[in-house]
Design a protein around this nucleic acid. Sequence first.
RNA 1: UGGGGCGUGGCCAAGCGGUAAGGCACGAGACUUUGACUCUCGCACUCGCAGGUUCGACCCCUGCCGCCCCAGCCA
Length: 472
Amino acid sequence: MSEERRAANFIEEFIDEDLASGRYDHVRTRFPPEPNGFLHIGHAKALCIDFGIAEKYGGKCNLRFDDTNPTKEDAVFVENIQNDIEWLGFSWDELHFASDFFEKLYEIACGLIRKGVAYVDDQTSEEMRKNRGTLTRPGVNSPYRDRSVEENLDLFRRMRDGEFPDGSRVLRAKIDMASPNVLMRDPTLYRILRCHHHRTGDNWCIYPMYDFQHPLQDAIEGITHSLCSLEYEIHRPLYDWVVREAGFEHPPRQIEFARLNLTRTVMSKRHLRRFVEEGVVAGWDDPRMPTLAAMRRRGYSAAAVKDFLGRVGVAKADSTVDLALLEHCVREDLGGRAPRAMAVLRPLKVTLSNWPEGFVDEIAMENHPDHPEMGERTLHMGNVLYIDREDFMEEPPKKFFRLAPGREVRLKGAYIIRCEEVIHDENGEVAELVCSVDMDSRSGSEGRQPQGQGHAALVERAGRPPLRDAPL
RNA sequence: UGGGGCGUGGCCAAGCGGUAAGGCACGAGACUUUGACUCUCGCACUCGCAGGUUCGACCCCUGCCGCCCCAGCCA
């Protein structure tokens, strides 16, 4: 680490501090998704931070699946998540699954019970909720809070052995029911849940909660900096409590940053999942989704996505980034190297009145204006073509330089045409245009540019080739 | 009315006591057979508000105001 290197954000400042103070002599981060859906652009931000920080400090980043809630998870998601990470160009050091550590976590839980800082609670979830108090009122201790270590150990073992029905008991941390931080009011560590797990099958009927599993897993993996989003800030005291009570020597340091929000974009996995399940979209990779799979399908490159995330920055203020920035990054990336194609989104029929009968011209169209090596394609032009309705106005305002009654425009790569007649349908809508074509104005020919309006017109836009190569 | 965070231009975001970076968006102009791209110029006398400390504050202190998160046997 060079001394002159300046921290690029507050996370790096913390890490620099830790390295300078000797708290750590290396950096190891982790990206910890729950395999319950596809990764979206918001996850990509966290991913870039996790992997990016490790890379910057010459450290390592692990990929870990926090698969502790089998009711929502599936193996297809773990496979897809790995694909997405690789697509972005990141390589994880170690690959872990929380489920591979269930036995270890169980042992640690027993250790907590022996220390007298965890107990089995028989209250119903309703009773627990009621006794937890409110934001402004402290909670009250569970009547089962002072069970003996032996009884707790026995009960917890029997929970694991499947002697009790789902939801009948939980293992809780014994902290402080009067804590102003509600999360510290004896949080649940384990719950009984009979559900087939995509990796451990039916081996377990008790599953650890995030607040217990996550910090321990970080500690077990030797993570130095556990980076996560702002909503976990209030979990940090509990995170530290768990790691400390479990006796880890070098506790990881949790640092929180603001998650990504984008204008006009639904980023909640809960809603995205609903869209998929209810068929609102065709799938997780439906082009309308904010998932990496969808963006890839739309032609966004990993470089563009990472460039965007880099420009967004890392901070703690809640924010909503303008979608225009993402689009700018994608255009900038694609603009210089993507082959061009023309399309008409809202077609308006144009008939050329003086086009030679039966003549079909072959128009050579460059695939990229700045890259002749990308070659060209051939479009076929006849007496009928389609332009976008946006490129015609019957009563053009001053700054409109495209087609209008009596005006000329050049069809990109082809001829100059003049609007001679506007045909309306029964509703008075413009239905078709009759234009004359200047057969001497073929692209490449000398000189003439459309006069009067001053500019050659862009008549082609996106969907369908305006110079069609097949009858529409 | 509890606790934890955050407030710099339309949207992000630098700034760490010495007199407001950068990007996106937007506006004006140049160029253009993609009105794209590119290029040039413009865009916070001011940093949520009000006091205070200081020669000097966005950066320090005090008090307000606003927004976000937390009462899952989700992560």
